[in-house]
């Protein structure tokens, strides 16, 4: 295959991947975040302690997380068909990706929120705040940098999952690599896909890291970005040399 033939395929596949990852990220965040908060609130000693609900959510989350994604996809076929009317295609893939990523993200959210100092919860209560105030004014804003990091990890996992979703003819870079690279031995396509996936993951990771760092740095005096640290170190070395 010539480059001219590959290029339109790559462009389409790229958009398909972005479509799948984009929508499933939105859905995962929208459902996973409240779910994670609920896991914290309903746990023993939590603000809305409800051991039964907590156990039920926990078990569902664990079951979903313990299945390899490829198996989960197959198991989800009836559900997907019921929800979007098809078991294959981009929208079906979005459903499967979301179901796979929600429990993952919910656990990350749970961990992030548990990191918040319980003293802040106490302070908000002492001011006359209710549970909603605690969540909205203290837990979420204080764990935001950590939540952003968690979402970054989730998006990268989704990029990987979306390649697997390619096997159910969902399209995207994974599908392209599978049909051309693997089944037709088009190495050029394979390499181009790999490069694109690496680029995509790198961009997501970088954007996530920068955002998380910018949020965490609010007010912190020290600890710049690694790049800045290196620069600063170089500057220090320079000044010591000249003096």
């Amino acid at each position: 295959m010539t480059w001219a033939e590959i290029q339109p395929l790559l462009t389409t596949a790229c958009w398909e991947t972005l479509y799948m990852v984009g929508w499933s990220t939105v859905i995962t965040a929208a459902i996973g975040l409240p779910l994670g908060v609920l896991l914290v609130l309903t746990s023993r000693g939590g603000l809305l302690q409800n051991v039964v609900l907590n156990k039920v959510i926990g078990v569902v989350v664990n079951i979903t997380r313990s299945l390899p994604f490829i198996i989960l996809m197959v198991a989800l076929i009836p559900f997907t068909r019921w929800l979007v009317g098809a078991a294959f295609g981009l929208n079906a893939a979005v459903v499967m990706l979301s179901v796979g990523a929600i429990p993952f993200f919910a656990r990350l959210v749970e961990t992030s929120i548990r990191e918040v100092d319980p003293g802040l919860v106490e302070a908000v209560h002492a001011m006359g705040g209710n549970t909603r105030t605690v969540v909205v004014k203290a837990l979420l804003p204080e764990s935001l940098p950590s939540l952003v990091s968690g979402l970054t990890t989730t998006v990268i996992a989704l990029v990987g999952y979306s390649a697997m979703a390619g096997t159910i003819s969902a399209g995207g870079l994974g599908n392209l690599a599978w049909t051309y690279g693997y089944q037709r031995f088009e190495n050029k396509v394979m390499i181009a896909t790999i490069v694109l996936l690496i680029a995509l993951v790198t961009v997501v990771q970088l954007a996530g890291d920068l955002t998380a760092r910018a949020l965490a740095r609010r007010g912190a005096r020290t600890s710049g970005a690694p790049g800045l640290r290196l620069l600063r170190a170089a500057r220090v070395a320079e000044t010591t040399e000249t003096s």
Binding site: G119, H125, A126, G128, P141
Partner: peptide
Amino acid sequence: RAGAALRAARSGIGMVFQHFNLLAS
């Protein structure tokens, strides 16, 4: 899950803490 009356009463009682408990964000 304090009731509204108790929350209102609490907002009329100030409290300061050993570890300040300020929101870093």
